[in-house]
């Protein structure tokens, strides 16, 4: 790995943290937890940096959260959050980013639509596939109930996929050998 790779990894870990500073979007009132922009960082890191660097960027981010820095949206951090109900989603971020990166690297000329499909696969399907069973296990909730809680997050996540696909596609064009 070159110095540039190290700096890019740090940059996207920091980007994910900076996205947590944006005020979370409240919809459905107080009935459901607010939706944060933070998983946009997962999508962008994978789509822009590729499998290895994207995965490492999110691994770095999760390590910084684990040591107690309040980098998650709402100023949360520490081991407690990683072990809580949404811990599975957070711990899945490195592999989600790596999957998005792997698919995006294999198909560099695929265009924004296909890139969006890859981002959705890693950033929604895989993330939910890890996070929902974790939530069901930690909360003794059962799969069906956990699944129905997460349905509320799908619209917000789809918006993030669209934003990430447009941004990443433009960045790929602006910096072809990133």
């Amino acid at each position: 790995m070159t110095t540039k790779d190290t700096v890019y990894i740090a940059l996207f870990a920091a980007l994910t943290a900076a996205l947590g500073l944006m005020p979370p979007l409240h919809f459905a009132g107080a009935a459901l937890p607010p939706i944060s922009a933070q998983s946009l960082g997962v999508m962008l890191a994978g789509a822009v940096l590729g499998a290895k660097r994207g995965g490492l960027a999110l691994l770095l981010f999760i390590a910084l959260v684990a040591v107690g820095l309040p980098l998650l949206s709402g100023g949360r951090g520490g081991f407690g959050v990683l072990m809580g109900t949404s811990g599975g989603f957070l711990l899945s971020w490195p592999i989600c980013s790596a999957l998005i990166g792997y698919l995006a690297e294999r198909d560099r000329e695929g265009g924004a639509l296909k890139l969006g499909a890859y981002i959705a696969l890693g950033g929604i399907v895989l993330m939910y596939a890890v996070g929902i069973p974790w939530m069901a296990f930690i909360g003794k909730l059962g799969m069906a109930k956990s699944l129905s809680i997460m349905v509320a997050y799908v619209p917000g996540d789809l918006i993030k996929v669209v934003v990430a696909a447009i941004l990443a596609e433009n960045l790929r064009k602006a910096y072809p050998n990133l």
């Binding site: 940059l11 920091a14 943290a17 900076a18 910084l64 980098l71």
Partner: peptide, 10 residues
């Protein structure tokens, strides 16, 4: 190096 850069970048 990556850790200190990330903390500075935020």
């Amino acid at each position: 190096l990556a850790i200190s850069l990330a903390l500075r970048f935020i």
